[in-house]
């Protein structure tokens, strides 16, 4: 399911003295089956864009196409549930949304709201829990007795159990320790690769964007600053730093190495593994 944003504008507290322009003239596409990263400084409008993807916010100008539905500014929209089932959002610190007595009930909350039978929802809860790497006995426990990292996984399972076609992730690893961060990012990547799920990642981590995404949308001051492949985006270091973003560590190191080498490497390496291979290959040649 493709998502297309066309000239989208949104203002918070529109028509009050507290009015604030959040995003304007935002247009970009999220192709089905791809992994799109939205990067930008805090306050660049990333989170506002994200909430439009399942119509938690409706554009004040412009329109959004979500699959075959078009959400246009100024129109009353009914029956948004179908969209929300197909576009799942994992918010930042999703463990804050847990509320049920047991992990199982909490994971079932989404599926049941979308009309899935109880039996089927429980089946899905089991599957989702396995996907996030938690043992089955956790199902009967209270989510509030779990550790922070486990709560995060349960909350993610709650969204996965909805079996969305598009998975939108807002800083899903914020506050996790390095191992937790790595495991979770790998899980999303495998969902995208193996199950063909469309992933949209909102992140501050240029490393994650470089490693996982195949398309990048750069936001700055409420507008789309640039879109492109990771290679296109990250090869222009000065452009990134101009809007307060970092160059991925790998790219920074590659540049340093190229300086020493006196010539550029054949292509831009996006992960340390790739860079290590490239340097090793070069050594073989020389």
């Amino acid at each position: 399911m493709d998502i297309k944003l066309r000239e989208v504008e949104y203002r918070y507290a529109a028509g009050t003295p507290f009015e604030r322009l959040a995003i304007t003239e935002v247009s970009f596409d999220i192709p089905s089956g791809g992994y799109t990263a939205i990067i930008g400084h805090t306050g660049s409008g990333k989170s506002t864009v994200l909430q439009h993807l399942n119509v938690l916010l409706k554009p004040l100008k412009g329109e959004i196409q979500i699959g075959s539905r078009t959400i246009a500014a100024g129109r009353k929209e009914k029956n948004l549930k179908e969209i929300r089932r197909r576009v799942g959002i994992v918010f930042q610190f999703p463990e804050h949304q847990l509320f049920e007595e047991t992990v199982e009930k909490d994971i079932c909350f989404g599926p049941v709201n979308f009309g899935v039978s109880e039996g089927e929802a429980k089946e899905r809860a089991r599957e989702a829990l396995a996907l996030v790497g938690l043992p089955e006995h956790v199902l009967e426990r209270s989510p509030f007795d779990l550790s922070g990292g486990q709560m995060r996984r349960v909350a993610v399972a709650g969204v996965l159990a909805m079996q969305p076609e598009v998975l939108v992730l807002d800083e899903p690893t914020a506050g996790l320790d390095p191992r937790g961060r790595h495991d979770m990012m790998e899980m999303f990547a495998s969902l995208q690769k193996e199950k063909g799920m469309t992933c949209v990642l909102v992140t501050h981590s240029m490393e994650d964007a470089a490693r996982y995404a195949d398309r990048i949308v750069m936001m700055h001051k409420g507008r789309v600053y640039k879109t492109g492949t990771p290679c296109e985006i990250f090869s222009d270091g000065p452009d990134l730093t101009a809007i307060g973003l970092d160059v991925p560590e790998t790219v920074r190191f590659q540049r340093l190495f190229e300086e020493k080498l006196g010539r550029p490497l054949g292509h831009l390496c996006l992960t340390p593994e790739e860079l290590a291979r490239e340097i090793s290959r070069l050594r073989g040649e020389s």
Binding site: D177, P178, R179, G180, R181, H182, E249, T250, F253, P272, E273, L275, A276
Partner: peptide, 13 residues
């Protein structure tokens, strides 16, 4: 469960 800084990681690789 801890990570390592980038240059250490790259050294290893």
């Amino acid at each position: 469960g801890l990570g390592v800084p980038f240059s250490v990681q790259l050294s290893q690789l």
